[in-house]
Amino acid sequence: MKCPLCGLEFNQEDGLKGCSGCKSMGACGLIKCPNCGYEVPAESGIVKFIKRWRKKTDESK
């Protein structure tokens, strides 16, 4: 994913590493940019489902 503030591209796993020290320990559902700290919510399950479904539909065409 790409950070909307500084533009860094990083993996979701890297975005969870910045959470060490926070009380919620990643349970907030936010992904933190490892470069600037900007946080974005993790992609919703419904959005992931729709994307997968669209990909499948495109592949079957």
Partner: peptide
Amino acid sequence: YMEVPPLRWPKLSNVLTKTYTRVEW
């Protein structure tokens, strides 16, 4: 010092996805 990416037109699918994800969160 901060890197500034180019200005661009927003994509409707991006905007809807981000909005839904944020509202749900």
